[in-house]
């Protein structure tokens, strides 16, 4: 498998991609709602949290701490820590999103993994913003239908793991960064980020390993610089 210095021209998601992204967030929404209801939280609170907290991993992290008899304060700190990845994704978006302040504020609040990664594949600012909001719309449809189905029906499908549903989100994430993995810098950043995370999972509190995985981007930039400017690649396909 060779890695060309410049990846092929970026392609935009098609209808089946938007449908699959919606399904992925449907699965996430159902998972969170079922976990909240199982934890004895009311239907109303579950839906309000889905709207206001707006971070499935933060809700799950809080529940996990409370289930382990941890205090509410530790649960909140844990929820903040696992949400740090959305802050990092918003940093990425903030380097090239442009637009008015309200537009940028709305975009940052809606920063999730798929919409930021797919938008940042687009070299052209207008296309970047369009792809961001189209992906966001697909994620929201899936997330809301999933959250409501989760509270309405509860755990009707039984153990989702038996259906391989827990493989849906990581597979989607891998596909989303797939085209960037074909460029050397993107592959380096991903391998370094994944390795850093795995090294820290056994020793660090939940959320910290993913926060530290951001250093993988610094590793890629440093290695790329050591190869000299003539060798630097443009993994996101940015054209000047």
């Amino acid at each position: 498998m060779s890695h060309p210095a410049v990846e092929p021209a970026p392609t935009e998601p098609g209808w089946s991609d938007y449908g699959t992204l919606a399904f992925t967030y449907f699965a996430v929404g159902v998972t969170v709602s079922v976990a909240m209801i199982d934890a004895g939280i009311s239907v109303g609170t579950t839906l309000i949290a889905a709207l206001v907290v707006y971070s499935a991993t933060s809700e799950l992290a809080f529940l996990a701490v409370r289930a382990a008899e941890g205090s509410a304060l530790i649960g909140i700190l844990s929820g903040w820590l696992v949400a740090s990845r959305f802050g990092l994704l918003a940093i990425s978006l903030g380097t090239r999103f442009g637009g008015s302040r309200p537009h940028r504020a709305a975009a940052s609040i809606n920063s999730f993994d798929p919409n930021v990664a797919l938008a940042m594949h687009q070299p052209e600012p207008n296309r970047l913003r369009t792809v961001f909001w189209k992906v966001t719309a697909a994620l929201m449809v899936g997330w809301w239908v999933g959250s409501i189905v989760g509270v309405a029906l509860g755990n009707v499908i039984g153990d989702g793991a038996a259906w391989g549903l827990d493989a849906v989100f990581p597979a989607t994430l891998l596909a989303i960064i797939g085209s960037a993995l074909r460029a050397r810098d993107g592959l380096t950043a991903a391998l370094a980020g994944g390795a850093i995370c795995l090294m820290l999972v056994p020793v660090a509190p939940a959320g910290a390993p993913i926060l530290a995985s951001a250093l993988g981007a610094a590793v890629a930039v440093t290695l790329s610089r050591n190869r000299g400017p003539g060798m630097s690649s443009t993994p996101m396909g940015r054209r000047s």
């Binding site: 990845r85 990092l88 994704l89 940093i91 990425s92 903030g94 380097t95 090239r96 993994d113 930021v116 990664a117 940042m120 827990d166 989100f169 990581p170 994430l173 891998l174 989303i176 960064i177 960037a180 993995l181 810098d185 993107g186 950043a189 991903a190 391998l191 370094a192 980020g193 994944g194 390795a195 850093i196 995370c197 795995l198 999972v201 390993p209 993913i210 530290a212 995985s213 951001a214 250093l215 993988g216 981007a217 610094a218 590793v219 890629a220 930039v221 790329s224 993994p235 996101m236 940015r238």
Partner: peptide, 18 residues
């Protein structure tokens, strides 16, 4: 350039964790 590469590194971390 860190801005472009951050999603790759962070999402790889999420995949590894999951």
């Amino acid at each position: 350039r860190l801005g472009d590469l951050l999603p790759m590194a962070v999402i790889a971390g999420v995949i590894a964790q999951l």
